[in-house]
Design a protein around this nucleic acid. Structure first.
Lengths: 260, 260
DNA sequence: CAGTGGTCTAGACCACTGG
DNA sequence: CAGTGGTCTAGACCACTGC
């Protein structure tokens, strides 16, 4: 009951150059406040947030305004509405669509038909960020980062080789053992163990030829082309939190994408 | 002023097996009616549709209900709202984002920096659909289809080789000449000349090695891996209207994808 | 049955566009 | 200035969930 909604022009500045008054509707401000609560951990992944009526009372606006704010957050996969039950903070664990960011599908049959992927951690070590990694993670050159390499097997065959880099600070204490023990999506572990929730990601895809080491790990013949998938994953506030470079074998699988 | 909204349960059937009453909210029904008008060509791509108040009167519902229907159609890129002006039927032409379905980007710089793509029609002929194509286009085996092959060049270098298949009936009269003359997205030509608007698409991506013919057309060395992009494009009602198989050179470009 | 999100309405006012 | 979409409110009722 203590929060407060501010008047329309939030920026105290009156920049003569930018004539735009930067009008921001009420529901956008509410959206921002809810986002803050999510970010601060007031409501954790999987938990329910207060009801629309409660939030309306807290922010001193109508239910409809809260509703519109929640609608936008839900359409961005930050919240999940469940009629009759409430609104919940989205999570990568126990979600209908696990592996939300993995678009590799078997050529025939659904993803579930081949069962869960088998995972092998190949390497997990700390090192200092080079120029490329520090730029991608928006950290300083030489900062500590965690580098993990692993292979994913579908139906027994090695299909994905991936390397990922995480900023050292937020992931202090992450070891190969913790990763191996954990049974479930890696992003779910990040949520429960480190309070880092990945909200969106971007991928850049190319076709490449593997080197000898990759051929060995993926058990493929030389010159078998691979899909190179470079992903940057972001947490709240568009903060990059992971750089991942994956190599996909596309003999029996394909990268699936829906265009709207 | 003649249309009418039906009561909640649209299906006259009372199937004992399926206990679900199939409740459909009013705004969904309105959405369906608007979709019908779009499909029938009552409002054409680029044109404005009646104002929210007019539609509310026509369908005998409140403005808010029409609004929610339009909102969903707009978020699906079927309509475009312009404050102060009206609501318009989306089009692939003169749109902010031309080439909406083309996700290939230059590695550095924005898509506009390299200017518009140069296009070369290689082949355009009619033939009979084999099993694969008839399945993809939901037509009968042996039905007439149009097959087009072309190369796209970015900044002067051949980058995309693609083959596409269209059902013969809706595209009667499409020739290589018409395609060559036209300056703009192919999907825009489909709209203006054949009244076919592509609404969404799905792509399956793999990494492949090119054959000799592809190497020649794309001016690449053998064993240069390519991105194979197989796209099915749909018009209203989830009707498949195009099968397209593209081969992308990813030396200086990449396939960009945003994950939410 | 109470509590939640979901729908629908009616009306007021605001921001933007164009004549 | 009139007309459009955009915001905000208040209230009623419906559909779904779980106790």
């Amino acid at each position: 009951m203590t929060s407060q909604v501010f008047s329309v022009d939030a920026s105290g500045l009156t920049d003569a150059a930018s004539a735009a008054p930067a009008f921001s509707p009420l529901y956008q401000q509410i959206k921002g406040l809810i986002l803050q609560s999510l970010q601060s951990g007031e409501w954790k992944p999987g938990e329910g947030i207060p009801s629309e009526m409660e939030l309306a009372a807290r922010y001193r606006v109508s239910q409809g305004t809260v509703r519109k704010a929640i609608d936008e957050l839900a359409s961005g996969n930050l919240l999940i509405r469940r009629q009759g039950k409430g609104t919940f903070v989205a999570t990568h664990a126990e979600q209908q669509v696990q592996y939300r960011f993995l678009k590799l599908m078997p050529d025939s049959g659904n993803p579930k038909s081949e069962g869960p992927a088998q995972r092998k951690i190949i390497d997990c070590k700390r090192l200092r960020a080079n120029a490329e990694i520090s730029r991608a993670l928006a950290i300083r050159n030489g900062d500590a980062v965690l580098q993990v390499s692993r292979v994913l097997l579908f139906a027994g065959s090695p299909t994905i080789l991936e390397h990922l880099w995480l900023p050292g600070a937020p992931f202090k204490g992450l070891t190969a053992e913790r990763l191996s023990e954990y049974d479930g999506p890696m992003y779910a572990l990040f949520e429960t163990e480190f309070g880092v929730r990945m909200v969106r990601a971007e991928e850049k895809i190319k076709a490449v030829v593997p080197d000898a080491a990759q051929c060995k790990l993926l058990e493929i013949k030389p010159h078998t082309p691979l899909l190179s998938v470079e992903r940057t994953a972001f947490t709240y506030n568009d903060t990059p939190m992971e750089l991942r470079r994956g190599f996909y074998v596309t003999n029996t699988h394909h990268y699936h994408n829906a265009l709207n």
